[in-house]
């Protein structure tokens, strides 16, 4: 019996870890997917924007105190700061390149990633940083016999909020509907007399905001450091691909697959737990080469 209970406890806590990891991945990959869908830009620099979000959250909590105002301010201000970076990038550079082929856009955003990487190095240095969440999000909540970390539970609330907000934005607001239309047929939207250029700018800024939000959300759970952009961009690109390019719900499903296979894989084979998500991606793409849900491409 004791063994059975241990197993249930281990599975539950790994499920929670996997789900909360999936929520952060979802926030980041929803932004990536939205930009892919509306702008047709595979934004390699998305991971760098996520990293900037995490570093900005560190600076904001350092300025306003670890405790109450700091972390909550960081959750709002860090993504906004990243959104501003995104707006500058889009208006100054990216907006001139929409006619180019995907390969050029990938290389362009890779160039942006290289530059942002060194700018972060100049701004924050190469040391490891960390932040502590406010008191009411630290420690764990005991349900039954199981201690469940509060911060992970908090992430389980944030993820669905972002999903619903994105759904409301895309389906209920004017600019959301225009951006959805632009994803399907951008010439037609232009013909209707809508300034597509600003719709694209808005879509890109929203994508960047989500990258920054993901970075701010992950900040208390990990060490913030250079190089965190490189794995997250690979993971989120794979998530977006298995979900169906540009499909936000696909990004949600892909994130769940990615997060859960890794955390549950840890129970099966600890040394190779990180292999499971990539193996899952390969299996999904073998079965459905165009992703699980309908791609907007």
């Amino acid at each position: 019996m004791a063994f059975g209970q241990d197993l249930v406890g281990a599975v539950t806590s790994q499920l929670l870890v996997g789900l909360s990891r999936a929520m952060i991945l979802f926030v980041v990959s929803a932004g990536l997917s939205f930009v892919l869908g509306v702008l047709r830009v595979p934004n390699i620099a998305h991971g760098s924007l996520y990293m900037i979000g995490a570093f900005a959250a560190f600076t904001i909590t350092a300025l306003f105190g670890q405790a109450l105002p700091g972390f909550w301010l960081a959750l709002i201000l860090a993504p906004l700061a990243v959104a501003v970076v995104g707006l500058i990038l889009e208006r100054a550079l990216l907006s001139h390149l929409y006619q180019r082929e995907h390969l050029m856009l990938i290389l362009f955003t890779f160039g942006i990633m290289l530059i942002l990487n060194d700018l972060v190095k100049i701004g924050w240095g190469a040391e490891y940083r960390s932040i502590v969440p406010p008191d009411n999000l630290t420690g764990s909540l005991t349900i039954g016999d199981l201690p469940l970390p509060r911060y992970n539970l908090f992430l389980l609330i944030v993820g669905p909020i972002v999903a619903v907000a994105m759904w409301l934005f895309v389906n209920r607001t004017r600019i959301g509907k225009i951006s959805r239309a632009a994803a399907v047929d951008r010439e037609m939207v232009g013909v209707l007399g809508i300034n597509v250029s600003w719709v694209f700018a808005a879509a890109f800024v929203i994508g960047c905001f989500l990258a920054g939000l993901g970075g701010a959300l992950i900040a208390p759970t990990t060490s913030i450091t250079l190089g965190m952009d490189r794995t997250v961009i690979m993971d989120t690109f794979l998530i977006v691909t298995i979900g169906g390019l540009g499909n936000i719900w696909g990004a949600l499903i892909g994130s769940l697959i990615f997060g859960l296979t890794q955390s549950l894989g840890l129970l099966l084979w600890p040394q190779f737990a990180v292999v499971f998500p990539y193996a899952a991606v390969v299996l999904v793409l073998l079965a459905r080469p165009k992703g699980l849900l309908r791609s907007v491409w």
Partner: peptide, 26 residues
């Protein structure tokens, strides 16, 4: 080659990542 263009590339990245992650853990 079952896929084309961006899907071809992403499939290759996922397979390559599999090789990378196994190599860096084994």
């Amino acid at each position: 080659i079952r896929s084309t263009q961006l899907y071809f590339g992403m499939l290759q990245i996922s397979l390559g990542s599999l090789v990378w992650i196994i190599t860096s853990r084994w």
